[in-house]
Write a protein that binds this DNA or RNA. Structure first.
Lengths: 344, 344
DNA sequence: TTGAAAGCGCTAACAA
DNA sequence: TTGTTAGCGCTTTCAA
């Protein structure tokens, strides 16, 4: 174990101890003994000593030499958001399965920190980059379009830029949810949005509008509000609409945090779900079934997004010239519970 | 930017382009121009070119040379658990603030994976280790006791081993919660435990028993159940007690997941909180206020645990010989909502 | 069948 | 004021 500086086990040390060259030791420990027809005894003695000394090769040195660090970088806007935590879980598990390490950066929902993170990661010699972009600007990503550097986006992508991505089928998710509300008699559906101009938000708005259109329900911009995925936005926007006495019978919340904020506003206004108002929220979480009432949700396969993204990334690392599917959309699933009332 | 292998900007390249040695370039870019009295012009030209070329030093090479990678390793049992995600958030943010990078490993609640993670992290040349141990065995950590290698545990620690740690004051948390239940007239309190033999669990049991003792309430082992922090355990143990018609008026759940499982069992049994049964849960989360009913909780400062642990770790990295406080306990806070009924 | 030497990119000791 | 040299630990020619 390399805990102690002066006791670090290196090829050199093993070689010296056995009276042979580092080269031979390296070859044996990399499984090239046969190829170089190294004598069985030498091989055995090296393997034995390496095991005794618990030799672990320095990936630093190896990375420097081979330009191969078996490390990928992961940039996440906020690891304490359960949706992203779940993506990170998929990423670390799948990376580890492929013997890759993950360096994690938290961009704190801030493009500048995102840019800085990229620099830090590159200086650490990552072989590929997995990025959940903050999402509004992509100027700093343009250079990757023509570059051979392996990169995959997750959750959010940019239509104006061709970089592979893995995301949920947000269009279908929002459309299905809206459709479900319509089938239950709702026509005035508050659309509680997250950060506008991000791909998930735009796709969800399209899905929402498509469902309305399919039932010839006119779009009412007055009840399409919000511009951030957080709880505060859900609270203030809902409260605002309530105070304005806007006319709506259901809320479609674009994130679990927006939903919680809306819930807070409703409870302050003494309104009950689903009696006074119906609701559907994006993101399924274990607690959703225990809310008051159990919440109907649009579940995303968040861990799978992370796994799939790693797989794409490793493919690109292994063969940078093979073309990668530009975008992968994972299905969403409407989980019906009790937060939607059937209007007669 | 080091995206392109053949275009990687190095000290050598800058030196060659300017007709000076790498040494000089290195000194200037490390801010040692003054110390070596390097001429203003040389300095200016180097700084200018480095900026133009967007030079970013290879931390790999630097790490190899200096034995200093400005990287710490973080091992977490399950990043998709919001409690650990929150710790990870504190860790990444605080590490970044100190210009350190974080390599993340998910041990998946498995000691063998934890051990493997350590090896991987060491091979990557981490300067220090931040470990949320799975918690039951610590054989593999013994070697750190006498070692100078910087390590800090978070959340769980081992009394039989002297390694610095940061955790919640779980004893006080459980004691306060139990006390609150007792004050509300409860004497038969189901103690829904997580993994036995882990420090958080043991400390919470002690707190629970201390509160009972303080009110001369005998301990009833029949209603002290559970052996895992997950949802399934909460469900099956609660269900079991219910079926056995055990006599209890309140539940103290040792994690948010246990609480959710208990909730599921109660709802199947058509029991309502707090009318039929009272409940308090460890871990506060944003959704807790919106459960049915709003849940009284014991909040932990999870993000602060991560931050504090990083600070301790960096201290140890900077001065390995200065003695570190062996254990730091962060306060918990009882957040009273509506899940506890006052028995007359 | 084995080794010597070079070099990945960087910094530090020693020289000049 | 600047440069030469060595070396971190590893792999890979090239040579024997």
């Amino acid at each position: 174990m390399s805990m102690d500086v002066n006791s670090r086990v290196t090829l050199k040390r093993i070689g010296k101890q056995l009276g042979i060259s580092v080269t031979t030791v390296s070859r044996i420990l990399n499984g090239h003994a046969r190829r170089y027809r190294i004598s069985k005894e030498t091989e055995k003695s090296v393997v034995k000593l390496a095991a005794e000394l618990k030799f672990v090769p320095s990936r630093l040195a190896r990375g420097l030499r081979l330009n191969k660090t078996t490390t990928i970088g992961l940039v996440i806007p906020d690891i304490s958001n359960p949706f992203f935590a779940s993506i990170a879980n998929g990423v670390t598990v799948e990376a580890h399965r492929n013997n890759y390490g993950v360096i994690l950066c938290d961009s704190q929902d801030n493009v500048d920190m995102e840019i800085e993170s990229l620099e830090v990661l590159f200086s650490r010699g990552i072989e590929g980059l997995l990025l959940c972009p903050v999402g509004q600007s992509c100027e700093h990503l343009k250079k990757f379009e023509r570059s051979r550097f392996p990169i995959v986006l997750a959750d959010r992508y940019f239509p104006q830029i061709t970089i592979p991505y893995v995301a949920s089928d947000n269009f279908a998710g929002a459309r299905d949810a809206t459709q479900y509300l319509i089938e239950n008699g709702h026509r005035q559906i508050m659309c509680l949005q997250g950060l506008r101009n991000t791909s998930p938000n735009k796709d969800r708005v399209r899905g929402y509008e498509a469902a309305l259109a399919a039932h010839s329900i006119p779009v009412n911009r007055d009840i399409m509000v919000g511009n951030s995925f957080n709880e505060q936005c859900g609270y203030s926007e809902t409260r605002q609409l309530l105070e304005n006495k806007q006319n709506f019978t259901a809320i479609l919340a674009f994130s679990n945090l927006l939903m919680l904020g809306a819930l807070r506003a409703l409870s302050e206004a003494k309104l009950r779900i689903p009696d006074n108002l119906s609701m559907i929220s994006f993101d399924d979480q274990p607690y959703m079934a225990h809310l008051s009432p159990p919440m109907t949700t649009i579940a995303q396969e968040s861990s799978e997004i992370g796994q799939k993204a790693v797989r794409l990334l490793l493919e690109r690392i292994q063969s940078p010239d093979k073309s990668t599917p530009e975008g992968v959309l994972l299905p969403t699933r409407l989980i019906v519970r009790e937060s939607v009332k059937h209007l007669n």
